[in-house]
Design a protein around this nucleic acid. Structure first.
Length: 922
RNA sequence: GGGCGGUUAGCUCAGCGGUAGAGCACUACGUUGACAUCGUAGGGGUCACUGGUUCGAUCCCAGUACCGCCCACCA
């Protein structure tokens, strides 16, 4: 006998172990259709958050669904080494340890070893957390983006090397010196995507750059019509900046060619204050005459715009800072120092203060404006990014993007919902070269070796590089490997095929690539989806997935992004502890409508926990009534006789169809809603109530059939609900099944129910629907006029067609029970003093002489009548509109007529009742 | 500056050219042998605003107002 509650804490781990032990998550054998998903690999040292919970729940729903449908399902799991993020954690650990150790003092090998140890220590955590959620990944295939460090054949690393070398050979990877986003905290380059622009409070300093030789000019400011607003003699040009320290590296001052204010001095030199160099005033399209003074200082080596201007105009670019953003000396083309000695070694922000002060001291400060300014921050480090001129490795993303764009344009790859393809196109069509080198230690080292003169050789191994070098130099030379590692996303981009054994031609690749679906949040469309598309198409010849289901991001109840600093993080594991994994999963699925974000309210989780309990108790009821003898082969749902059984078979089939349809369209919420409503509002609320008299009655064919049907319907529920609530359904399946020797399998691998169209029984649906409506109507009336819940009253059906009468007779026992009636009968006259309600064209009369509440009854009737009047008025308005009658589709017009007839009929009956009531009341 | 979403019941959200829905919360009643993590009944919405298309608009179109997100080099 089942307990009266399901205890997820005990049952879930046990069930999960059983699944794993039975290899339920491995792709089944055979040649059935395949279905594959690669997991978005979580950071190896990460902790499961709500985003993972949603992402993996949805993947698991799909995998379990398809597995039950008989497909060979591979859900490929694994973790990502997450270069910067992980290195950062370990560096912080060193710092927190309080010793003098840091990354540099440890040295590369020792540090990397430290990170590996941290990975080994914490790397299992997130996997175990995914298991607690119920994720049905094939864990025997777990992969790590860095591979296994003890494996000399490390295939994941081989895949990365091969990808790099092939792209290099194809001219799609190159080395270049250009301005990159430099993170002074981590001392590495980062890609555009890892930069977060934030608006902060800053200042806008206005300086004077004196014209060389003390020359002056007439500065004239005009309005739109050319009228002079302001005019003065100046011996300077006014420039404005939010970053004064960069002025030390200015190469010119630029003005717009059309800017007449500065026309007199274009081509002249200004004296750069502090640095005491002469720089030219040039024209360029870049400056906006309406912004600031219209004159822009050009610091080619520390600003992306200025870099472009400097390149166009062949201006010198002076690097001003080192890797930690401390000011450094830089020579000009004649070898003279550019940086005044006093600033050398200063931090950039200290230098800023010093420059501002020194400019002021020289009387060259015009004003300081407080201003909101956009500043780039490293998304991991949180420090201001410094544009720096460095040598880096780049991927020619533009070339790789073309087929990736085309694949989506042609529909080979579909985004669901489709509007995300716009976001994808927008980015892909404007893609910039992808900087893939990182000055980190944790990652795949770049397979390039340098000769003594800086010439590099890209090769699989050092040996091969040396061979190449020998050919190049004509003699053996010592080579040193590039110090840098690759951007994490370079290896993540290979994930759909590297995890399946690429570059080897494996059976897995043949069977499971391309994958069926990618399930991901929209925040990594650029980072990951785009890169997988580019690399997948390039290396495998076809896109890595057929569909990309993009789900929402989980927010807190107020819609704020969950973040540790806000303290609004809801820990999915706490919810699992409290409500069970099934409840959390169901909540996430039910809320996965295709919007932008999911605001999670804990009350929903509690609600779905209750749903699990409801199901549990329904099963318990079935068990008590011996509805557990399910022998699917021996029972044919199409062959049941009792209307109520034919009805539940029909409703079950309808629901299963809906769930399939909705899941195939990724409408998880609709699928979840359908099975929820069926289970609770149809099976529990009505079917079980309707069959109680049969189950409590005498043994016989009817009881036997009903037991079997109930068991069957419950079984269908367990199957259809399993993808959403795998634990409780598996537990019930185990508890209620009679395990014969031939039925050893668990629900997780059992077959999804197939339904014959013949399972649908419209006549049974109509009949039971009538009973339900009748009972509901009676209950409603009773409640409205305050009939005590325990009071049993006689009911009489007056009027109505033969079918209604027949139904009443057929179900009188049931109706009496469910509506708490003393009796029900059929009469041609309404009994005196009866309370009346209308069902179709029949009148329901309740005789309650002793218990009637006249006032309540009058109020009830008046309200009903008013409502009907309202309806009728609305309908009349429509029907009297010629345009409506002539233009609306026939069935709509007919429906209005029908509704009017019904309403008028009901109104007349209720009006009569009101009149009668008035006469009694007096 | 571009782009994309959102605005529906107290809250969190579905829906969608033809009588506005769910969960939670709320109210009343209820110890009917599955279930109080429950049952029965009920209250609650001019579907942001303004125009347009249409016989008919919460739904389609345009605009407005708020809110949110993404992208972008205004020094």
């Amino acid at each position: 006998m089942l307990d009266n509650h399901f205890d997820p804490k005990v049952a879930e781990p046990r069930i999960y172990n059983e699944w794993e032990r039975s290899d339920a998550f491995k792709p089944r054998e055979g040649d059935a259709e395949t279905f594959s998903i690669v997991i978005p690999p979580p950071n190896v040292t990460g902790v499961l958050h709500m985003g993972h919970a949603l992402n993996n729940t949805l993947q698991d729903v799909l995998c379990r669904f398809e597995r039950m449908r008989g497909k060979r399902v591979l859900w490929q799991p694994g973790t990502d080494h997450a270069g910067i993020a992980t290195q950062m954690v370990v560096e912080r650990q060193l710092a927190d340890a309080g010793g003098n150790e840091d990354r540099r003092s440890l040295g590369r090998d020792a540090f990397v070893d430290r990170v590996w140890r941290w990975k080994e220590e914490s790397g299992g955590a997130i996997i175990n957390q995914l298991k607690r959620l119920g994720a049905s990944c094939d864990w025997s295939r777990e992969r790590f983006t860095l591979g296994d460090r003890n494996d000399p054949d490390n295939q994941m690393a081989a895949a990365v090397r091969k990808a790099f070398i092939d792209l290099y050979k194809d001219g799609l990877i190159y080395r270049d010196k250009r301005l990159v986003n430099w993170d002074p905290q981590f001392q590495t380059a980062i890609s555009d995507l890892e930069v977060e622009n934030r608006e902060i409070d800053g200042h806008f300093w206005h300086f004077k750059y004196p014209i060389a030789g003390g020359e002056t000019y007439t500065y004239v400011e005009r309005d739109e019509d050319g009228n002079v607003l302001f005019e003065e003699e100046r011996d300077y040009i006014s420039i404005a900046t939010t970053r004064p320290e960069t002025m030390l590296g200015d190469g010119a001052v630029a003005v717009h060619p059309s800017d007449e204010r500065y026309a007199p001095i274009v081509g002249k030199m200004v004296r750069l204050p502090l640095a005491d160099r002469l720089i030219p005033i040039i024209t360029d399209e870049y400056p906006d005459p309406d912004f600031g003074s219209g004159a822009v200082k050009i610091t080619g080596a520390h600003d992306f715009n200025d870099y472009a201007v400097a390149k166009r105009n062949d201006l010198p670019m002076y690097p001003l800072m080192d890797e930690r953003a401390r000011m450094i000396q830089s020579p000009d083309k004649d070898g003279n120092p550019v940086m005044p000695e006093k600033y050398v070694g200063m931090d950039r922000f200290d230098a800023r203060k010093a420059v501002v002060q020194d400019i002021g001291a020289q009387g060259l400060m015009i004003e300081v404006e407080d201003k909101k300014i956009q500043q780039p921050f490293g998304d991991r480090s949180g420090v201001v990014i410094e544009p720096m001129l460095t040598d880096q490795w780049y991927v020619d993303a533009e070339t790789l993007a073309q087929p990736a764009i085309k694949a989506v344009e042609t529909g080979d790859v579909k985004f669901v919902p489709d509007n995300w393809s716009k976001t994808y196109f927008e980015w892909m069509r404007n893609i910039e070269p992808w900087c893939i080198s990182r000055q980190l230690w944790w990652g795949h080292r770049i397979p390039a070796w340098y000769g003594p003169d800086g010439k590099f050789f890209v090769a699989e191994t050092k040996g091969h590089a040396i061979d190449q070098a020998k050919e190049h130099y004509g003699e053996h030379v010592e080579l040193t490997q590039d110090e840098d590692v690759l951007d994490t996303w370079f290896s993540s981009g290979l994930w759909p095929f590297s995890t399946m054994g690429w570059p080897d031609e494996t059976a897995e690749l043949k069977d499971f690539y391309p994958t069926s679906t990618l399930v991901t949040g929209f925040d990594i469309i650029f980072f990951w989806v785009a890169r997988m598309m580019m690399q997948g198409i390039h290396f495998m010849g076809e896109p890595p997935f057929k569909e990309v289901y993009v789900h929402a991001l989980v927010r807190d109840e107020k819609g704020a992004k969950m973040s540790k600093s806000k303290g609004n993080v809801i820990d999915p594991l706490k919810l699992v502890d409290e409500y069970g994994a099934d409840a959390l999963r169901f909540t996430l699925a039910a809320m996965a409508a295709q919007g932008r974000d999911i605001k999670l309210a804990e009350s929903r989780v509690a609600g779905y926990r209750n749903f699990g309990t409801k199901l549990w108790n329904a099963a318990r009821f079935c068990q008590m009534n011996e509805c557990t003898l399910w022998e699917p082969d021996a029972f044919d749902p199409l062959n049941v006789d009792l209307t109520v059984n034919r009805w539940i078979v029909s409703e079950t089939a309808k629901t299963a169809d809906t769930v399939v349809r909705e899941l195939e369209a990724y409408r998880f919420n609709d699928a979840a809603g359908a099975i929820y409503r069926f289970t609770w509002n149809v099976f529990c609320d009505w079917y079980l109530e309707l069959i109680k008299p049969v189950l409590n009655g005498e043994d016989g064919a009817a009881k036997d059939e009903t037991r079997k049907t109930a068991a069957w319907a419950l079984n269908q529920i367990l199957h259809v609900l399993h993808p959403f609530m795998p634990f409780v359904t598996e537990e019930l399946w185990g508890e209620l099944s009679e395990f014969g020797p031939e039925r050893q399998n668990m629900l997780v691998v059992d077959a999804w129910p197939e339904f014959d169209a013949a399972a649908r029984a419209p006549d049974a649906e109509a009949e039971i629907d009538w009973v339900i409506r009748l009972v509901t109507e009676i209950r409603s009336v009773r409640s409205d006029i305050n009939v005590p819940a325990g009071a049993k009253v006689p009911m009489t059906l007056v009027g109505g067609d033969d079918e209604a009468k027949a139904r009443l007779e057929r179900y009188s026992d049931l109706i009496e029970r469910l509506a708490r009636l003393e009796s029900c009968s059929i009469a041609s006259e309404i009994p005196a003093g009866a309370v009346q309600a209308v069902l179709d064209d029949a009148t329901i009369a309740l005789t309650l002489t002793n218990v009637i509440d006249f006032e309540a009854e009058r109020a009830r009737l008046e309200k009903e009548i008013a409502k009907l009047n309202d309806d009728i008025t609305k309908i009349d308005k429509k029907l009297s509109n010629e345009q409506f009658v002539s233009k609306a589709p026939e069935h709509v017009v007919a429906e209005q007529h029908e509704r009017r007839t019904d309403a008028v009929g009901a109104r007349s009956k209720l009006s009569d009742a009101l009149t009668t009531l008035a006469s009694i009341g007096e």
